[in-house]
Write a protein that binds this DNA or RNA. Sequence first.
DNA 1: TAGAAATACTCAGTGCCCTGACTAATCGGG
DNA 2: CCCGATTAGTCAGGGCACTGAGTATTTCTA
Lengths: 158, 158
Amino acid sequence: MAAVDLSTHPGHLARRLQQAHYLLWNTMVSEEITSPQFAVLNALVAEPGLDQRTVGERVGLDRSTIAEVISRLGRRGLLDKVRDPQDGRRSLLRLTDDGGRVHRKLTVRTARMNQVFLAPLSGDEQALFFSLIQRVSDAAEGLRNPVAPGEPAVSRAP
Amino acid sequence: MAAVDLSTHPGHLARRLQQAHYLLWNTMVSEEITSPQFAVLNALVAEPGLDQRTVGERVGLDRSTIAEVISRLGRRGLLDKVRDPQDGRRSLLRLTDDGGRVHRKLTVRTARMNQVFLAPLSGDEQALFFSLIQRVSDAAEGLRNPVAPGEPAVSRAP
DNA sequence: TAGAAATACTCAGTGCCCTGACTAATCGGG
DNA sequence: CCCGATTAGTCAGGGCACTGAGTATTTCTA
């Protein structure tokens, strides 16, 4: 009677998209290392020695989740975690040799997987796909913080 | 050195999009009822008396997850679950009056939330956004089953 | 019609994701 | 210098999502 069409609900579509991605990742990339775990490895390849909070910021994981992910990667021996001697609050992170190897291997497979995943779209459509999702996510993210005083909420015309 | 740009990785973008949505849902729609829970309520408004598996199919949740979601909705008194007398394997589901009320209330709020969420996109872009995501998800979903004999993998030209 | 196959559901285990409360360390202003 | 605010990380708790194994029920078939 008053039911709604979920295919026009971005949240529902986002969930389905992620599930589809999970499926493909699991079959084409790895059953051991998850996509968020790969994102963490990747962040540490780009910037070794980052502290835990910053890694979370780079890959979009909150303090609790990043702690769990890092603990799992540590258990697998893919990264090392040491207290910052300069600031006893921080944990500094660095890939092990194994971590680097795993990252390299998965980078290749991930590229292949992305091709398959995006195959239904033309090159132009893929660019559009990225930019539309990015814009929506960024805007919503901007609504999070109550806007620093003097700062505009989202982007300002240059 | 060999780090990758995650902003061109659809999986990463999908995760970020869902997080953004979660955030908005939590502040604009409900802190009690989640988006997947709403999807289940919605499916039962459209088709009362559905069995558990079919509801899962409608909203895109696997057998285990749908069981959990339904158990939570049952605990809150939003739906009733009875054994099918015709087929003792099935559980038939139906909203309670309370469930219907909650669905109506959230339908309104969800519409408002979607507007805010999609505000950064023009009308044309929103349509594109839906269709691109849909196409990618459907295609990946199509790779799941090993293709019924005689049936084409994805869509067939009409 | 009896046994095999399929189907609906449950349960255990793993991982992601968030909030809110807490601890420990650092930093800043009086 | 010290006390209050800020910051990094941990922990408990709730919810989503998947796989693999197990149970009960139905259905198909030899």
